[in-house]
């Protein structure tokens, strides 16, 4: 009798006969895993592990002040986001501040100030994708500084604030409680 050789899959392990799967797996690979690929070095991981999480994990070394951020903003950001962070429609740059309290009203204005629930997202996104014409070019100090300047202009932190891993982690955004889990299906028209 010819048996079909199979490879392990999670579904098979759960649903099918575990013994058969294990045997045929051994016949194919002779090991518990395929073992393809290599082990990345810590440096290789660190080089692209740039995300920052809302609980503060992932913030890099460095710091920046509101005053320093003002300079970074003027040279790297203002062209698209406007001198006063009001956004520049022609450039496709969104408004960064204002609109607080408008979410869910006819005048809804989504900005970092009014809508973004976590300061970590501001740091993370600026670091990974901004400025648009030179993505990923800002140093950690510059990202801390420009984050500080935006958060200050959004009336979230003081003018004399210095932002670093510790202070950024403690920022509470105005709309932090503005999000709920997806409740769908929300229309019960079943048959």
């Amino acid at each position: 009798m010819i048996k079909k050789l199979t490879v392990p899959s999670r579904g098979a392990k759960v649903a099918a006969g575990a013994v058969v799967v294990t045997l045929s797996f051994a016949a194919v690979a002779g090991a518990e895993t395929f073992g393809f690929g290599t082990t990345p070095t810590e440096q290789e991981i660190a080089a692209i592990d740039i995300d920052v999480m809302s609980d503060g994990r992932g913030y890099p070394e460095g710091s920046g002040t509101v005053a320093q951020g003002k300079e970074v903003y003027a040279s790297k950001c203002a062209a698209c986001h406007g001198e006063n962070m009001e956004g520049v429609k022609e450039a496709g740059g969104a408004a960064l501040i204002g609109g607080r309290g408008t979410i869910g009203t006819p005048k809804t204005k989504k900005t970092v100030e009014s809508y973004w629930p976590y300061a970590s997202t501001l740091f993370d996104y600026t670091k990974r994708a901004m400025p648009f014409n030179e993505p990923g070019s800002l140093s950690n100090d510059e990202v801390y500084a420009v984050s500080a300047y935006i958060l200050h202009k959004a009336n979230i932190i003081d003018a004399n604030a210095t932002m670093n891993a510790e202070t950024m982690s403690k920022v509470e955004m105005p709309n932090k409680d503005g999000f709920i889990a997806d409740p769908r299906p929300d229309i019960f028209n079943y048959r």
Partner: peptide
């Protein structure tokens, strides 16, 4: 262990519904 709260799952791809709250992780 937690979602990363990236820009595309907070400031975008969230649905403000009638109580003013925004639905997040509306995947399906």
């Amino acid at each position: 262990d937690k979602p990363f709260q990236t820009r595309e799952e907070t400031s975008k791809y969230t649905d403000v519904v009638k109580d003013g709250k925004a639905r997040q992780f509306s995947f399906t």
